[in-house]
C-alpha cells in the first residue's frame, strides 16, 4: 500500500491516470500526445505506476496498451469506508461536483 500512496503523490502521475481514466488502453505515444513531459519522463512515471499496480499493460497485436487498474484504490476504499457511509459519500461527492462543475 505504501507504493500506491507514493505513486499517487505526484501530479504528473495523477495526470497520466486521469488520461487513462478518460480513455483506457492507450499506447505510450498516445499517452505522451499533448503532454509537457518528455517520452522518457512518461516512461519512468508509467514504470512507477505499474510497480504500484495502478497501471497494467497488455499487448494487442504490435501495440502495448496501458490500462488504469483501480483495484488497489478500491481496496483502500474498502479498508476505510464503512458500508453505511458509502451512499452519503457518493451524495456529497455529487453535490461538490455539481457546485464546482469539476471534480479535481
Amino acid at each position: 500500500m505504501d507504493e500506491v500512496f507514493k505513486a499517487l503523490a505526484d501530479a504528473s502521475r495523477r495526470a497520466l491516470l486521469d488520461r487513462l481514466h478518460a480513455r483506457n488502453g492507450q499506447t505510450l505515444t498516445e499517452l505522451c500526445d499533448g503532454l509537457a513531459m518528455t517520452r522518457q519522463a512518461v516512461t519512468k512515471h508509467l514504470a512507477i505506476l505499474e510497480a504500484a499496480n495502478l497501471v497494467t499493460t497488455r499487448r494487442h497485436g504490435r501495440e502495448k496498451l496501458h490500462f488504469l487498474n483501480p483495484v488497489p484504490i478500491h481496496q483502500i476504499g474498502e479498508r476505510w469506508i464503512r458500508k453505511f457511509e458509502r451512499a452519503k459519500l457518493t451524495a456529497l461527492g455529487d453535490l461538490k461536483k455539481r457546485l464546482e462543475d469539476s471534480d479535481d
Binding site: 499496480n53 487498474n69 483495484v71
Partner: peptide, 14 residues
C-alpha cells in the same frame, strides 16, 4: 482471440 481488443484490465495480488 486476436480479433478481440482488450478494453478493461484489472490486476490483483493474492
Amino acid at each position: 482471440i486476436s480479433r478481440f481488443k482488450p478494453e478493461t484490465v484489472y490486476t490483483i495480488y493474492i
